[in-house]
Structures are given as C-alpha cells and as structure tokens.
C-alpha cells in the first residue's frame, strides 16, 4: 500500500480490504446457494417427469399390446403369414368380406 501510495499516489477507501473480503465471500456463497437450489429444482422436475413418464408407460403398455394384436389379426398380409396361404386378390377380397360380415354380426348384436 505504502509502496503504491508513495510512488503512484493511488490508495483505497478506509477498511476497503476488510469489506471487499466479506463481499467476495458473500458473492461466492450466494452463487453456491443458487447453484444448489438450481440442482434441487432440476432434481425435483426430473423426478416429476420420471413419475409422469412411468405412469404413461404403465397405462399404455397393455393398450399398445392390445392394439398390436388387433392389428395382426385384422391384417390380410399377417393372416396369410399365419395361415400359410398365398396372397391373391381373391384372398384379400374374401378376407375383407368376412371382416365386414363379422362386424355386421357384431354391431347387429
């Protein structure tokens, strides 16, 4: 300080370094606290998102399986694979006519 003041005439306000020390440490603590809070917030939101996704999967998984099964059985192509028959125009027409009839019976009931 004397060195600088004597030759360069530059000085600091009274108790500057004491106050500055507190200010620096205060700023660091504040930043630390903020980053911890941010971490807590992100942890909270991540947990919420995980629960939400888990719920969606839980309720949709059996439904998806059901959809897949229904699709399989209603597809003439899959049907030919299962039955081993050749895909012809006649087969497809017959497959859909049968479906329509079955639906009519179903809705009729």
């Amino acid at each position: 300080m004397n060195h600088h003041y004597k030759k360069l005439g530059i000085r600091v306000p009274k108790d500057y370094f004491k106050k500055s020390r507190e200010e620096i440490i205060g700023k660091i603590n504040l930043k630390e606290k903020k980053s911890t809070e941010n971490y807590n917030y992100s942890y909270y939101y991540l947990s919420m998102a995980a629960v939400f996704i888990g719920t969606l999967i839980f309720y949709n998984f059996p439904l998806n399986n059901k959809n897949l099964t229904e699709f399989d059985s209603n597809s003439p192509i899959i049907s030919t694979v299962i039955s081993g028959e050749e895909i012809t125009d006649e087969y497809i027409i017959e497959f859909y006519s049968e479906s329509v009839v079955l639906n009519e019976i179903y809705f009729g009931n």
């Binding site: 530059i10 600091v12 500055s20």
Partner: peptide, 28 residues
C-alpha cells in the same frame, strides 16, 4: 492474495471502482 491481486489489477485498469469489480470477478 486479495491485496496483491487488487494492486496488480488497479495498475492495469487504473480506477478503484473498476479494480474492485475486476477483483470480485477474478475471485468468482
């Protein structure tokens, strides 16, 4: 290091207020 760093900064930026800002940014 606070005082040593401050004086180094002060001689580069010249004003006390600027040196104070730079000192705090340095520590962060």
């Amino acid at each position: 290091y606070q005082e040593k760093i401050y004086w180094m900064i002060r001689k580069i930026v010249l004003s006390h207020d600027s040196a104070n800002d730079v000192l705090q940014d340095t520590y962060i």
